[in-house]
Design a protein around this nucleic acid. Structure first.
Length: 568
RNA sequence: UGGGGCGUGGCCAAGCGGUAAGGCACGGGUCUUUGGAAUCCGCAUGCGUAGGUUCGAAUCCUACCGCCCCAGCCA
């Protein structure tokens, strides 16, 4: 990518803001410091990849630092299993947190101390209202709330109660610690938000050491302050939490200056949405739990694990993220952009192989029965360093069924009766006869080759328009292929609130093809490698399901097909 | 009907008072032993709408319209 292009891509409002901060000296010498704060309660998807690469990219571009911090303040939903998968996914994407792997739960003790200082300052109180009462007292979107009867409890009583909450003297839900802000605020987040709740639950890291846990709004800004995060990026729906974020930061700076490394600021940006898929955790879970896919890492899922198994590269995802850009406007990016990024990369890196996905037998009638000739073919056209290979050619071959038409339309320039076509890397053949079975289906083609037309030493002067791929039958290696397509048939499966998104599932999203003939070179290919099956698409030898006797390839993406477009 | 956010071509997205970048998609040409790739050309007299300020407005002001988010002891 040229420098010019790199510059263009980074003209987003966050980069502009950071540059301004740096020019103004607003960071007071601190390095630019970002973080990615996942909750370990599920799998990461491509939307998270946008956030990860944005945060990591900023740290890189401004010579700063990037932290990974698990937001593990809710022991009921969080598990070690997700910590592991999230770390793996982020590493795979190429974001490096170096030695800065943190957990919100690392700071539970300091946070408890901070809460105590808030109480002492008269800015937080223990509230005995139950959940339903708190909701009632909160008011509605259009009416102000009422103050809790416990709001003006003496500091000493609050301190005592809060300490006993920690000791486990009270059951779940019986009391909470709340900030004393403004029950009449138009912003519901400021109506005395809950800071701590009682949860007698085993935490994946702290075990049973705690039975009170901080809420996100209290925890997150404070964690940012402790880690010295300068730019706390999050998605748009947190915009109305920003006043509360700032309230916490202000109090942290005032009440716990010795602990605060930086007065962090929150900036929101639009989350990523894409056509032909769903992104919400709830919907993805339904796909998994109701068996529409084979798990979180099913290659049709927009999860990082799914994209990885599909064969998509981290480079392609990074390129995609760059091209999508960053703004505050709700947006749904065209899947075609991701596909473009994938093809763009694989075009220059994936070796070519010939595989016939839907075989039709062709007999070269003027080719000797027992003769095999080796055709030299480049692995990546135009890239000599990628080397070449020998592909055996013989009397009986397979071609794609749709590379022949008995009664071709005007602009069809592949094989047809009495027409010629070039077999890629080999000879020009002519179709002399069509053999049909008893039901009238085309069973075999009888063709003749022109010896003058050998690839690379063609003396015939023939100019044939069509070039098709082929596989020698007796030399073929059989493989299995998973032909993946979009999981949904419509661009936006969640558009219609009345209709369940499940009803838009594409029942052709996975077509399994077994015993597909491929050129013999495919037998020696290492798991985890990617290829272009000529004229068909890019494929990935899935290491997860590799059977050495019969390898299984996942289709990553099809090649662009202007013929298919023309037919429409 | 409270608070907040957002509206620039089909989809993203620059632009920050000097006369609409770029990418994807789309259409067309060249080239091609992948109908791939590459390459060239085209694609908003227009920036949600209506007024206003100004020599000059996507950018400033006013009003209106539309979409999204918020009433978890989730994050």
């Amino acid at each position: 990518m040229s420098e010019k292009r790199e510059e263009d891509l980074k003209t987003n409002f966050i980069y502009t803001m950071i540059k301004e901060d740096l020019e103004k000296g607003a960071l007071q010498g601190s390095p630019v410091h970002t973080r990615f704060p996942p909750e370990p309660n599920g799998y990461l998807h491509i939307g998270h990849a946008k956030a990860i690469l944005l945060n990591y990219g900023i740290a890189q571009d401004f010579n700063g630092k990037f932290n990974l911090r698990f937001d593990d303040t809710n022991p009921i939903k969080e598990e070690q299993e997700f910590v592991d998968s999230i770390k793996e996914d982020i590493k795979w994407l190429g974001a490096d947190w170096e030695d800065r792997l943190f957990f919100s739960s690392d700071y539970f003790e300091v946070k408890y101390q901070f809460a105590i200082r808030l109480i002492k300052a008269g800015r937080a109180y223990v509230c005995d209202l139950n959940q339903e009462e708190i909701r009632d007292y909160r008011g509605t979107l259009t009416e102000p709330g009422k103050e809790s009867p416990y709001r003006n409890r003496p500091v000493e009583e609050n301190l005592d109660l809060f300490e006993r909450m920690r000791k486990g003297e009270f059951p779940n839900g019986s009391r909470v610690l709340r900030a004393k802000i403004d029950m009449a605020s138009g912003n519901l987040n400021m109506r005395d938000p809950v800071l701590y709740r009682i949860l007698h639950a085993e935490h994946h890291r702290t075990g049973d050491r705690w039975c009170i846990y901080p809420m996100y709004d209290f925890d997150h800004p404070f964690s940012d302050c402790l880690e010295g995060i300068t730019h706390s990026l999050c998605s748009i729906e947190y915009t109305d939490h920003r006043p509360l974020y700032d309230w916490i930061v202000d109090n942290a700076v005032e009440l716990m200056p010795e602990e605060v490394k930086y007065r962090s600021r929150q900036t929101e940006f639009a989350r990523l949405d894409m056509t032909f898929t769903v992104m919400s955790k709830r919907k993805l879970r339904r796909l998994v739990e109701e068996g529409f896919v084979d798990g979180w890492d099913d290659p049709r899922m927009p999860t990082i694990a799914g994209l990885r198994r599909r064969g998509i590269t981290p480079q392609a995802i990074a390129d995609f993220q760059q091209r999508v850009g960053v703004s505050r406007a709700d947006s749904t990016v065209d899947l075609a952009l991701l596909e473009h990024c994938i093809r763009q990369e694989l075009e220059n890196t994936a070796p070519r192989l010939m595989v016939v996905l839907d075989p039709l037998k062709v007999v070269i009638t003027n080719w000797p029965d027992d003769k095999t000739e080796l055709c030299q073919m480049e692995n990546i056209p135009g890239n000599e360093s990628a080397g070449s290979r020998e592909v055996p050619f013989s009397r009986e071959i397979y071609i794609e069924r749709d590379d022949f038409m008995e009664d071709p339309p005007k602009k069809y320039f592949r094989l047809a009766p009495d027409r010629e076509v070039r077999l890629k890397g080999a000879y020009v053949i002519r179709c002399d006869r069509v053999v049909k079975d008893s039901e009238g289906n085309i069973a075999e083609l009888q063709c003749s080759y022109d010896p003058q037309t050998r690839s690379g030493s063609d003396t015939s002067g023939k100019k044939v328009k069509g070039v098709i791929h082929w596989v020698s039958i007796k030399d073929a290696t059989m493989i299995d292929v998973n032909l993946y397509d979009n999981l949904f048939t419509v661009e936006n499966p969640e558009e219609d609130d009345e209709k369940d998104f499940i009803s838009h599932i594409n029942n052709q999203s996975l077509v399994v093809s077994e015993d597909i003939p491929a050129e013999p070179a495919i037998a020696d290919v290492p798991a985890g490698s990617r290829f272009q099956f000529m004229r068909k698409g890019y494929f990935y030898l899935d290491p997860g399901i590799n059977n050495r006797n019969k390898p299984t390839f996942n289709r990553i993406v099809q090649l662009r097909d202007s013929w298919a477009k023309m037919k429409k």
